[in-house]
Structure formats: structure tokens, C-alpha cells
């Protein structure tokens, strides 16, 4: 089911939570609604769910306008951040609850619930109360409850935020598996860019109620539309430094970084991905200020005439603080942004 949002706006009294939003979510895709907290992503999700009515604009599921439909008529399944499993009902009763409301005969409902339980692999937990389940198990029950009524759309609101790190990895794979297995159009709200990058087909990035960019995770990373997108994606984050273009050359802290064609002379904001800083290979010289070890990587902070540039190298790369290193930059990892609007300035590094 394709989902379209047309000129959607949401105001809470005088505060505008979502501004004039236009997105299209492809049928059968797993789309991430990504952004920092307060960016309006959960509000958008709840508007799609029908729990919030938009102040202006229209929502379409396929060709059907659902803007005015109540949640139960939209054919959506929603998984809440805290799962919202009814604590007084058993797992089975929780899963049966939506079917009960659809007046589906008991026998059939039971069959559907059991099938769903098989898909999310909680068949042996059906008689337990939610409080007797682990976080991951509760998550599965919540998904089962959301999907059991043959939902057209699955909505997930920060589904992993209540899990510990290890379980998070496991569960997101699980969500991916279930999504693939059912082929259901899924919208996944998260503030964790890594999470979004790793499982979604498509990301809608939001900030302060505005859409920043919609693209596939890879495209969004490789080709950020603006400074916010570049900064939000990637870990360690992109290096942001003031620079300027002079005669098709990008100059940062008085040092020529690389050639840059097709851009007029002007001051710019430069974004350099840490992995685009190629150490030991080039003629720009900088001293090592700081060395951090993050997992299997080493992050080296270089002091380039007062500008700090982080570079990522493998763990076995040996260097010392104060040591003078030479480096160059990989052109595809260098982006230019407008100093005032933050918009991407396209050109060709050379």
C-alpha cells in the first residue's frame, strides 16, 4: 500500500509541529522516519495512524483518502514505544483483542492469532502475562497484535528504544525479517541514524517539523542534500569546518584541500567525512592532537593550523600524539554547504 502525505500540517495550539509535509512511501517498503527528538516524526506517525488529526493537508493510502478516517478504519497496525500491551490480558488475549473488535468468529480468530504468533515466534508464550515477558518478547507480541488483523500498514514508534544494545541489534533484524516475510508497508520512527541506516529501504529525515530529505539510506549518506543531513548521518560525525572557494580551489584554514570546479568564489561550510581523510597519502601536513579508540576503529584528531579534523583509521595504524602526519581527502567525501542556508553547493572536487 502506497502512502502519500500531501501538504500535511499539524499545530498544537500555537506550536507548529509539522510544516507543510509532502512525502510518498512506496508500497511494501520499510521506511524510516528519522530525526532528533521533537522533530515531529512521532506526530507524523500518529497522523498516519489516525490518532492525531492533521490541521491541514491530506493523507492517502493508495488512492483512498484516509485523512478523516478513525484509526480502526485505516487498516493500520501500530507498535507503541512502550508496546502498550494490555497488562491484565494474556499474550493470546492481547493478540485476539483487535480481532474481537472486528467481530471475527472465535475459532477463526484463534487460528489467525496462532499463525501470527508463529511468524513472530512467540507460540510458546501465549498464556503468559506481558509482565512475565522480556522486552524483546513484548516487542514481538506488540508486532503480532499490530499485524494480526491483516493490517495494510505497520507503524512502529521507536520500537527499539526500550531494549538493551545487544537485543536492539537482534530485534531490528527480526523486524526486518518479519517485514520482508509479510511484505507489509512499514513506517519506522527512530532517532537513531544507525538503526535507520541499517534496516530501512528509504529514510525520511526531519528536523524542526520540516522534511530535510527523503532518500535511500546509502544515497542520503553519500549525497546529503544539506548540512543537517550530512551532520545527522554517520558516526563518527562529519567534520564541519569553515572554508572558502578561491579560483576553483577549496581552502580550509589557509591550506589548500583540493580543487573544486563549478563553484563561484565564496565562503562556504565544508563537510568532510572522517573516512574520507586519507592519512599517509598526500601532501597536507597536520599534527596529531588526540587518538581515540572506538571499537575496531581508531579516530585521530588532526590539528590543521588550528582546525580540528577527525580521521578514521584501522586499529593497527600506529601513530603518536604530536606526530606530524600528511594526508589527502577523498573527493566523494567532501561536501560544500551554503554559509547561511546550509544548502548543499554542488560542484566537482578535483
Amino acid at each position: 500500500m502506497e502512502i502519500r502525505l500531501e501538504n500535511i500540517q499539524k499545530k498544537f495550539s500555537s506550536v507548529v509541529a509539522v510544516h507543510d509535509m509532502n512525502i510518498r512511501i512506496k508500497d511494501g517498503s520499510l521506511t524510516g522516519l528519522l530525526g532528533p527528538s521533537g522533530c515531529g516524526k512521532s506526530t507524523t506517525l500518529f497522523m498516519i495512524a489516525g490518532l492525531y488529526a492533521p490541521t491541514a493537508g491530506n493523507i492517502f493510502f493508495g488512492d483512498e483518502a484516509v485523512t478523516l478516517l478513525p484509526p480502526e478504519k485505516r487498516g493500520i497496525g501500530l507498535v507503541f514505544q512502550n508496546y502498550a500491551l494490555y497488562p491484565h490480558m494474556t499474550v493470546l488475549k492481547n493478540i485476539l483483542f483487535p480481532l474481537e473488535n472486528m467481530k471475527i468468529p472465535k475459532k477463526e480468530a484463534l487460528k489467525m492469532a496462532e499463525e501470527m504468533a508463529d511468524i513472530v515466534q512467540i507460540r510458546d508464550l501465549l498464556d503468559r502475562k506481558p509482565s512475565q515477558l522480556s522486552g524483546g518478547q513484548q516487542q514481538r507480541v506488540a508486532i503480532a497484535r499490530a499485524l494480526v488483523k491483516k493490517a495494510r500498514v505497520l507503524l512502529l514508534d521507536e520500537p527499539l528504544s526500550n531494549l538493551d544494545a545487544r537485543l536492539r541489534l537482534e530485534t531490528r533484524e527480526e523486524i526486518r525479517r518479519i517485514q520482508k516475510e509479510t511484505g507489509i508497508t512499514t513506517i519506522y520512527v527512530t532517532h537513531d541514524q544507525e538503526e535507520a541506516m541499517s534496516i530501512t529501504d528509504d529514510i525520511v529525515l526531519m528536523d524542526k517539523g520540516w522534511i530535510q530529505q527523503q532518500d535511500s539510506p546509502q544515497q542520503m549518506y553519500l549525497n546529503p542534500g544539506n548540512q543537517f543531513t550530512a551532520e545527522f548521518l554517520g558516526n563518527p560525525p562529519v567534520n564541519i569546518i569553515d572554508g572558502k572557494i578561491t579560483d576553483s580551489v577549496l581552502v580550509v584554514c589557509g591550506e589548500k584541500l583540493c580543487g573544486f570546479d563549478g563553484v563561484e568564489d565564496q565562503p562556504v561550510v565544508v563537510g568532510i567525512r572522517p573516512e574520507a581523510v586519507l592519512i599517509g597519502n598526500g601532501d597536507i601536513k597536520a599534527s596529531v592532537r588526540l587518538i581515540e579508540i572506538v571499537g575496531k576503529d581508531k579516530i585521530i584528531s588532526l590539528d590543521l593550523k588550528g582546525c580540528l579534523i577527525r580521521a578514521i583509521v584501522s586499529l593497527d595504524y600506529d601513530c603518536n600524539v604530536e606526530e606530524l602526519l600528511s594526508f589527502s581527502v577523498k573527493h566523494s567525501g567532501v561536501f560544500l554547504f551554503d554559509k547561511t542556508t546550509g544548502a548543499r553547493i554542488k560542484g566537482f572536487a578535483s
Binding site: P70, L78, N82, A84, Y86, F97
Partner: peptide
């Protein structure tokens, strides 16, 4: 009573 239960019930189509 947490509001999320009511939201959940609405999504689940309960009158």
C-alpha cells in the same frame, strides 16, 4: 491509566 492503552485500543478498533 497510561494514555497509550487507550491509543492502542483505538488502533485495535475498540468502541
Amino acid at each position: 491509566i497510561p494514555k497509550m492503552y487507550y491509543n492502542a485500543a483505538r488502533v485495535d478498533g475498540a468502541k
